Each structure stands twice: as C-alpha cells, then as structure tokens.
Simulated scan of single mutants.
Amino acid sequence: MILTNAQIVLPDEVINGTLTIDQGVIQSIDQGGVNLPGVIDCQGGYVTPGMIELHTDNMEKHFTPRPGVAWPGIQAFKVHDAQMISAGITTVFDAVSIGDVIEGSERLNNLTRMVAALTESKARSLSRAEHLLHLRCEVSHADTLEMFLSLMEGNTAQLVSVMDHSPGQRQFASLEKYRQYYQGKYKLSDSELASFIERQTEASRQYSDPYRKAICALCNQRSIPLASHDDATQAHVDESHDLNMVVAEFPTTAEAAIAAHKKGMFVMMGAPNVVRGGSHSGNIAAYELASEGVLDILSSDYYPASLLDAAFKIAELDSNDYDLSAAVSLVTRNPADAVKLKDRGRIESGAQADLIWSNRTNDHIHIEHVWKAGKRVY
C-alpha cells in the first residue's frame, strides 16, 4: 500500500510526501508524491499515527445504555470498538473500575461483564482496534483490594491507576463542586448527601493508604505500569513518584503537574478539557499546562471524538510552543512511550502501520480513513 500527496506528521517535522507500507509495517517515507497505479491520493490531507488512548470510560456507557438496562456484552463491546476506531484510536486501554463511591452501582455490576467481553472479543478477533486492560482502582472502597487481587489472578492488566474520589481533596478539593457533581449524578437529597460525604470521608481514612500501597507493590512486582490520579499537591506527586507511578492522570493544579513533569512522569490531561476550554470540575485547564510546557499526554476520557480535535487545537494555540508534531505526539508517541509500546505511535520505518488520514474542514479535523497494521478499518 502506498499513501501519497500527504502532509505526513513525523515525530519532529511535517513533510509533504509518500508512505510505503508492506505486511502491515511502514517500509519507507519519502519526500514528494508519486504517480503509480493503485496509490492512495491523500489530496494534501494529514497522515498521522493511529492514536493511543490510555484512559477511556467509553465502554461502560454501552453496557448500561439506560438505568437498569444491561446490554449483551459482546454487542456492547463491538459498538464501543467501532466508536473508538472511527475517532482514529487504534490502541485502546479500556478503563474498567474496581470499586465505586456508590454501593450497588451499575459500575460494580458491569465490572466482570466488561472484562469478559474485552477478553472474548480479543480471542475471537472481533475488534478493529487493539484493546488492552486498564484497571482503575478506587482505593477508598472497602472491597477494592480483594476485587483487584481476584481479577489479577485470571487477567493481565496492561495499566493500573490508583484513585481516591473522596470529598475535600484531589479532584474534589472544593466541597461545593463535590456536592454539585454527586447530588446531580445520583439525585441525593441534602440529608442523604451529608451522610454520603461522612461515609466517603471515613472510607478514605480507613482504606486509601494501605490499599494504594498494596496495589502498587503488586504492580511493581509484575512490571505493570502505574498511573496516579488527580494529584493536587507536591506531597501527592512525591508519594506517586515513590510508588513508581509513570503517568500522572489529570493533575488538578499547576503545582502538581509541574512537579510530576519534573520528576519524569508523563502528565496526562483530558482532551474534552482542551475542546471545552477548561475543566468541568473547576480544576486546572489543559491549555494552561501546555503554556507551561508540561502537558505530555491527552486522553479522550469520556468522549472519543475529542482526541484528534484536541491535538490540533493545542498546535493552533499561540499560548504554547507545541507545533503540530509535538501536539500529535500527545496522542501517539508519548502515550506509547509511557507504557513501553515501542512498535507504534510514530511514523518511521519499521513501525506498525497504524495510520489516520484526515482533512481540515473549517475548524474541525475530519477523518477520512483509518488503518490498523496496514489494514483499512474505517
């Protein structure tokens, strides 16, 4: 396969050129176009690496499309997969939550169903993207450690993140934002919310520290990459670094992001944060971290189509030094490097031919086609 007349986004520059792919691997990258039978003319559009998503909750919504509705696992997973690949995401770390802040929630009920569907879909080659398992561990939940150990007996996670969503700290340092979020999400009365806050505060005090340490110790023993979540202070970052975490997911302050970046952790922020122009929780905006030069990875989080748009938006902002190559690396090369996937996330000879062809349509980047290991999947 030959792609020509393309603006090829390389790790350090953008060239107008031609890509040659054979056996699912990039063979050569050449300046200029070619006029040969059967070539694919990209019409001056962009060719970028297929994107790598380290943290998405997108699968969950397809398993419970409405309250009380449990959709069959394989069908739900295939719809999720189609949505990811149409967004240009060719490698997906599906974030599956262990523990939740609400007892008996659909999130807990869906845990084993989602893991089983992911595993079966891979075994039956039913997906277009490559799906890997990301276990999100809510360490303020009483059953989290037991569930984590049980899951790890039969499955190999490729990424584990550790989080504590209890009130008054990290993502919810503002109790007002906490009340607004959980009262709106779960329709709690004022008295129910007060009891809920009390229970969550006590659960965090009792479980968070020992569970965090136990989970990280096991992952370090098995060489599974670790991610922190919602670090807000220098102390949070110091703890995460001491536990050998390599990714800082969604730090809530500039202080934490700058400290994590200095320690060599990959600072991840949400692509919806970029597209919307700020955090829905009132925390630091991703573009502010870009202006500081400490933004390393973008994640689509809850909205897959935000990822490519966000990378191009970062490149277009005058407030930072990210050119298009650096901005595209936020969704390709950098996440690959963070979890040691050396065969993808960049356009270079010998790399896997996971590719996106897109064109600019006004202020939107429109995806024409996506290839996974040289096979067209969209």
Rank of each mutant, 00 (worst) to 15 (best):
M1V: 07
I2V: 12
L3M: 10
L3K: 03
Q7D: 08
I8V: 15
L10S: 11
P11E: 09
E13R: 14
V14Q: 02
I21W: 00
Q23L: 15
Q27S: 09
I29Q: 07
V34S: 05
L36Q: 15
V39W: 12
D41R: 04
D41T: 08
V47Y: 03
P49R: 01
E53D: 06
D57I: 12
I74V: 12
A76Q: 01
K78D: 06
H80I: 00
H80N: 09
M84D: 08
S86T: 09
A95C: 11
A95Y: 02
V101L: 13
N110H: 08
M114P: 02
M114H: 04
V115L: 13
A117H: 03
A123P: 10
L126A: 03
S127A: 15
C137S: 13
S140T: 04
A142Q: 14
L149N: 11
T156N: 13
T156Y: 08
A157Y: 04
Q158L: 05
L159G: 01
S161L: 03
M163L: 13
G168Q: 14
Q169R: 15
Q171C: 13
L175E: 14
Y181N: 08
Q183K: 15
Q183S: 15
L188K: 08
S191R: 15
S191E: 15
L193Q: 12
L193F: 15
F196L: 12
I197T: 09
R199G: 00
R199Y: 07
Q200S: 06
A203F: 10
Q206N: 12
A214L: 06
A217D: 14
C219M: 10
N220V: 05
R222I: 10
A227N: 04
S228P: 04
H229K: 11
D230C: 09
D230F: 05
A232M: 09
A235G: 08
D238W: 01
S240N: 07
S240I: 03
D242M: 07
E249P: 00
T252H: 02
A259P: 03
A259G: 07
M265L: 13
F266P: 00
V267M: 06
R276I: 11
G277R: 14
S279M: 10
H280V: 15
L289E: 03
A290K: 01
S291W: 10
G293S: 09
L295F: 11
D301K: 06
Y302I: 02
A305T: 01
A310T: 05
A310D: 02
V328P: 01
A336W: 00
L341Q: 09
K342E: 08
D343W: 05
R344T: 00
G350M: 10
G350R: 12
G350I: 11
Q352M: 11
A353C: 10
N359A: 14
R360T: 08
T361K: 13
N362S: 15
H364V: 03
I367K: 00
